[in-house]
Amino acid sequence: MREQLEQLRNGALQAVATASSVEQLQDIRISMLGRKGELTALMKGLGSLSATERPIVGQLVNTVRDEIESALGAAIASAQEKVIAARLQSERIDTSLPGRRPQKGTKHPVSLVIEEICSIFSGLGFAVAEGPEIEHDWYNFEALNFPPEHPARDMQDTFFVENDMLLRTHTSPVQIRTMLKQKPPVRIIAPGTVYRCDSDATHSPMFHQIEGLMVDTKVTFGDLKGILTVFTNQLFGQKTGVRLRPSYFPFTEPSAEVDIACVICGGKGCRVCKNSGWLEILGAGMVDPEVYRHVQYDPENISGFAFGMGIERIAMLKYGISDMRLLFENDVRFLRQF
């Protein structure tokens, strides 16, 4: 019996060692250890042994079974590993091929800049306001203190349409419309399309502006400087130098042109800033009392500031675009880069 066991063990281990697949190993398990397997059959013969021999041989049978079992287990695991390894090897792909992308669209740079500026100002508590592009002279000029036949009207070449109306030359009429509708405090930002009757490399007959207006009690010119400094730093980066210098707009007084340190050369002087180190980006000032008179606000009790800037100019500076016309050519090779 012992010899039989020994033979069986050697045969089984031999078979396991030479088996080449998981299936063969499973077959070995069944033929050895299954219900009708050889070892099982041997175990059934234990009954014929003497009482003293039975435990010893029984012990031996168990040892042999454990031995085969563990050899089988290890062999199966290793065979399975090989199968997986082979599969992984066979399933390799060329991952360097480009991915299957959902198509990417882009917003127009003008929309992007408007969104960014509105977002900065909404963080400062300014609401977005809008107004008509085809305007009455009164909103576009008179209420903003441009009397008829005033030379200041030359600053803005105007397109006229029928019924004494015009294409607004700036977003400033939104100031008037807003103040006529609501009492202070007022804090708005008004992006929009505007039109002027000239066209060359730096002027487009249609362009975009953003107007800002804040009216409350005790708003100062220093506050205007503060708000615009925060704004330019957020738009062009912290520590962008800001300079206000005296200027003139009929609807603000005191008025200022606002320059930022040239974002191209950092203030050293270059072609873009005409060697001045400064770039003019917006006009601003304290709302003129004459404007308040037109909207029935009392300048003795309130004060405020207004500012306006050209979106295209800011887009050109932000993205380093040298020709404004690119913005309206709508060439997708240009637009898809945004």
Binding site: S122, G125, F126, A127, V128, P185, R187, M214, D216, K218, V219, T220, F221, G222, D223, K225, G226, I227, T229, V230, V242, R243, L244, R245, P246, P254, A256
Partner: peptide, 24 residues
């Protein structure tokens, strides 16, 4: 303001009342 110099004006932040400004 002009003769004294715009550069002499300190940048300050306005003290403002809260208004609801949710987009329409």
């Amino acid at each position: 303001a002009r003769l004294n110099g715009y550069d002499k004006i300190l940048a300050t932040m306005p003290i403002a009342r809260v208004i609801s400004d949710r987009p329409t």
